[in-house]
Design a protein around this nucleic acid. Sequence first.
DNA 1: TATTTGTATGATGTCTGATAAATTATATAT
DNA 2: ATATATAATTTATCAGACATCATACAAATA
Lengths: 242, 242
Amino acid sequence: MFSKLGQRKSLTEQVEEELTKAIRSGKYLTGQKIPTESELCEIFNVSRTAVREAVKKMSARGIIEVRKGSGAYVSEVSVQNASEILNMFFELSSNKDLILQTIDARQIVEPILAARAAKNRSDHHIDLLKKNMENMRSCALDATKREAELDNDFHNKLLSITGNEVLELLLGPIFSLMPKFKASVFAKPTSGNLLKAKNSMLEHHENILRAIVLKDEVGASEAMKNHLLETRANYVQSIKQL
Amino acid sequence: MFSKLGQRKSLTEQVEEELTKAIRSGKYLTGQKIPTESELCEIFNVSRTAVREAVKKMSARGIIEVRKGSGAYVSEVSVQNASEILNMFFELSSNKDLILQTIDARQIVEPILAARAAKNRSDHHIDLLKKNMENMRSCALDATKREAELDNDFHNKLLSITGNEVLELLLGPIFSLMPKFKASVFAKPTSGNLLKAKNSMLEHHENILRAIVLKDEVGASEAMKNHLLETRANYVQSIKQL
DNA sequence: TATTTGTATGATGTCTGATAAATTATATAT
DNA sequence: ATATATAATTTATCAGACATCATACAAATA
């Protein structure tokens, strides 16, 4: 059998592979500095070009962080880090009905998350959510961007109450994207409806929060369902008008 | 006071930013070729080094694909592409109880997904799931890797039946990771329990499938809950023994 | 002594120019 | 017209140079 007819990988890719493997195997720990470029050149016996391009790729993947004049360091694999990459994916996605699909996805998973939050919540969580509501109320009517961010924050806090980092990592982006959607869809809001829309949203959030305070899992789930139904309806209507 | 001189980004980063922006704005469409390196040098008035490093970063992000001797092409932003990045994050994650957190995450979201699948399923979907079951049955007892992959395939198919690409993208990794977990946890299976474990798993899958065939949303959800309860218990027990 | 300033060293960032290897386009021969 | 050989284009890799930044340490200043 022919063993290695497969197109041999480029040097850059080989270096990247080996370095990544080394990091994954624990040879270089989080925060630790990896060898300098010239050292890597000697280790792999390749030019600086190959090393640098491999390093660039790895930094784009969030595996390492390069600091000019200092060196390259193994970055912490964090939720935030991964979310950035996911966010970029969504931004690049040209899928036209991405917005609706995202809301649909939320309709599927968020009620159960709300129920979970009602089950797990501590008093500290309640404080955080209440503070969010306060900020929302005191937010100026025309500060739509801040309002969208606070909205996102509310749902993200709910997600974090579930206490599952894996879910946080994976589902975080579908909330943090909503402000962007909102900005693109509600670009020209009919000012008369602004107050009404905000009050409606506040009411929904209050209903959700109330159920969570009471540790009412079913109630929280239902309140979330209602909230998302209206959210979806609003988007559908606004998209139609475009 | 002096206004901040905003740390100017490196040339590589600037090029990457501009190029990404151009692609996102639709200047270069999916599958289309972007300008050659030397052209980009002229456009941005920088050296090939800067251009190449920007291109490498973008290819690492899955935005473009570089073909030696041909050029760089805007790649389709696919679910698979983003999933790869997510998978890498999980592989690099050193979180010790990642396995349990992942199973917990599945316990939260998968019952509702099963219910959704029961609602949405077509006859074609049923055929696919049945074929998976057949393969699983005819799979040799000691082919644990293949068995784990088929298991993963079953759950992934369920996920795809929901018909929501956003969810597929985000949740796909938590299934595709299970084979790796399985390999690391059940490295030395007590051979006597192999048959028992497989039969149990088959039974659970059958229960789930049956409910889906009947479009029984509650039944599918419950069957999935039971399945994951046992899955979790198995892992907990095996991890203890380590 | 404590703070600031100057300086040397080593790291990444960028440029230039060259050669190799893969692809694509062109020309040629049958 | 088809197939093949050749040329042109493009990315891959290398080498070396200088610029820019970070850091540590010595020197100067208060």
